[in-house]
Simulated assay, not measured.
Amino acid sequence: MIGYVTLGVSDMEKAKQFYSDLLADLGAKVLLDMERIAFIGKNMGSPMLAVCKPYNGEPNHPGNGNMVAIQPGSKEAVDAHYHKAIELGATCDGEPGQRIPNQFYGAYVKDPDGNKLAFFHFG
């Protein structure tokens, strides 16, 4: 299915640090760093998150309606990742909570570049 998702960023070092710290407890780290783009994940055979400076040299900008959803494994892990993201410089875009009774628990943040992330748990 999905090999990787790419997010445009304005500061590569800041973005690599943000996502490496945020996703470390899920086993993710920078796997491949090619200066303009870096791939973060568990291994090259699993889905990854890439951060990059746009190829065309224009400023990055987050899309309206675009979002990357991360499934950390439990409601408690959703809460932990939400709070960790905020500590790392993200802004709240929806505090943790039950969205669909007994089905979907989620929390939403925007990274330092404004890219929207969701942390979620089904069940």
Rank of each mutant, 00 (worst) to 15 (best):
M1P: 11
I2P: 09
I2N: 14
V5T: 15
L7F: 08
S10L: 00
D11N: 14
M12S: 10
M12E: 08
E13M: 09
A15L: 04
A15P: 11
K16V: 05
Q17I: 04
Q17N: 14
Q17A: 09
Q17G: 06
F18S: 10
Y19R: 07
S20E: 15
D21W: 02
D21F: 04
D21K: 13
L22C: 13
A24K: 15
A24V: 10
D25C: 10
A28Y: 15
A28N: 13
A28Q: 13
K29N: 13
E35F: 03
I37R: 06
I37V: 14
A38K: 01
F39E: 00
I40L: 08
G41H: 04
K42I: 12
K42R: 15
N43H: 13
M44P: 05
G45C: 02
S46R: 10
P47A: 01
M48F: 02
A50G: 03
A50H: 06
V51H: 06
V51E: 09
C52V: 06
K53M: 00
P54W: 02
N56D: 14
G57L: 02
E58W: 11
N60A: 15
P62M: 00
P62D: 03
G63K: 09
N64V: 13
G65W: 05
G65H: 11
N66E: 12
V68T: 14
V68E: 02
I70R: 07
P72Y: 12
G73C: 15
G73I: 07
S74H: 07
K75Y: 05
H81W: 07
Y82I: 09
Y82S: 06
Y82H: 15
H83T: 10
K84V: 05
A85R: 12
A85F: 03
I86Y: 12
E87D: 15
L88Q: 09
G89W: 05
G89D: 07
C92N: 15
D93S: 08
D93H: 12
E95M: 02
E95Q: 08
G97Q: 02
G97S: 08
I100D: 08
I100M: 14
I100S: 09
Q103R: 10
Q103F: 08
F104E: 11
G106R: 00
A107P: 09
Y108R: 03
D111C: 01
G114L: 07
N115T: 01
L117K: 10
L117A: 02
L117N: 02
A118S: 15
F119N: 02
F120T: 09
F120P: 04
F120I: 12
F120D: 08
H121D: 11
F122M: 12
F122C: 14
